[in-house]
Nucleic acid binder design. Structure first.
Length: 302
DNA sequence: TATCCAAGGTAAGTT
DNA sequence: AACTTACCTTGGATA
């Protein structure tokens, strides 16, 4: 077991681990006690995620545990590469100070940045991000988490770490073997055939989400919609929360509500046009950061 | 207790 | 290309 820690103060713009992992941008980390943001703080503050073997340098499934305490980010992991992996997954190298100060002045965005200082975007593994956001359609945040746990427990590799068993996120190959009926039994509803078919596309090599990285932002968004169950909104989520397109602004119900109430001039007749307008409103290059702060702020009653 | 409704939308069928 | 409609499931709100 590899353990260690680093000072939060050494990170430009700090870190709010809870806001980062429970703001609805990633569904791949869980509190040890399995509870979610809406249920309030509890437990000892540890979060864990399990990366499938096919995505790790060691070629073995990796368990990462992290918590924030006394101004430090602590970790326990089954891999010696934990520091690099955590920095990658939590975007610890982003200069949050610079990003915040480079965003245009705006009452709502300023309030969101102020209320949740330290919230960082994540860099989720592409396939897991893709599947989790296919699951997110018309679904409550807490249940999206539950779906990912159900998928991992049903189809993921079991990993033993520090006396406890963890389930890795399923591989495309294993998920492609699932039947629609099986997936529906996990309460995926109409998303079941989408997940199965998309997993099959990745497993057979027909298309992999990483391939979008070769394209400019709007072309990448369009390209991702080839996956079944992926429209413009989910494509934006994958671009922002996995592939590093920080200008992406997923137009979900909360952001559309914000546009109606705060930025009516950005409300256009198509996703593409509204997207362009709100991205400009949010300062372009890092518009996705503003989106995620505003989303979290509104969802938590801001 | 029964019914309604929204939840980080998308696909398929029509105009 | 823009517009409609159906779609699984569940927890919380409303009657």
């Amino acid at each position: 077991m590899d353990t260690g820690s680093r000072r939060i103060d050494d990170l430009d713009g700090g870190l709010d681990l809870r806001a980062t992992l429970e703001s609805g941008q990633s569904y791949l980390w869980r509190r040890d006690d399995g509870r979610t943001y809406e249920q309030g703080a509890s437990g000892d503050g540890w979060y864990h995620t399990v990366l499938p073997a096919s995505t790790t340098r060691t070629n073995e499934a990796e368990v990462l545990r992290v918590r924030q305490v006394d101004g430090r980010l602590e970790w326990e992991a089954s891999t010696p590469y934990a520091p690099d992996r955590i920095a990658e997954l939590l975007r610890l190298d982003d200069d949050l100070e610079a990003i915040v100060s480079n965003t245009p002045d705006d009452d709502l965005v300023d309030a969101a940045y102020e209320a949740h200082r330290g919230l960082r975007l994540v860099r989720d593994p592409p396939f897991a991000c893709l599947v989790s956001f296919i699951c997110s359609a018309q679904m409550h945040v807490s249940r999206i988490f539950d779906m990912q746990v159900a998928l991992a427990e049903a189809y993921g590799e079991t990993v033993r770490f520090d006396g406890r068993e963890y389930a890795a996120y399923p591989t495309p190959e294993r998920l492609a073997e699932a039947t629609e009926r099986e997936l529906r039994s996990l309460s995926l509803g109409y998303r079941a055939p989408y997940v199965r078919r998309t997993a099959e596309m990745v497993a057979t090599g027909e298309a992999r989400p990483e391939e979008a990285q070769d394209l400019d932002y709007e072309a990448a968004r369009e390209w991702l919609t080839r996956f079944v169950g992926v429209g413009e909104k989910v494509a934006d989520c994958v671009l922002l929360f996995s592939l590093g397109y920080l200008e992406a602004v997923p137009l979900d119900t909360w952001i559309r509500r914000a546009i109606a109430e705060h930025y009516p001039h950005c409300d256009r007749d198509s996703y593409e046009a509204t997207s362009r307008a709100i991205r400009e409103q949010f300062g372009g290059e890092f518009a996705g950061y503003a989106q995620t702060y505003v989303f979290h702020h509104l969802r938590t009653g801001g």
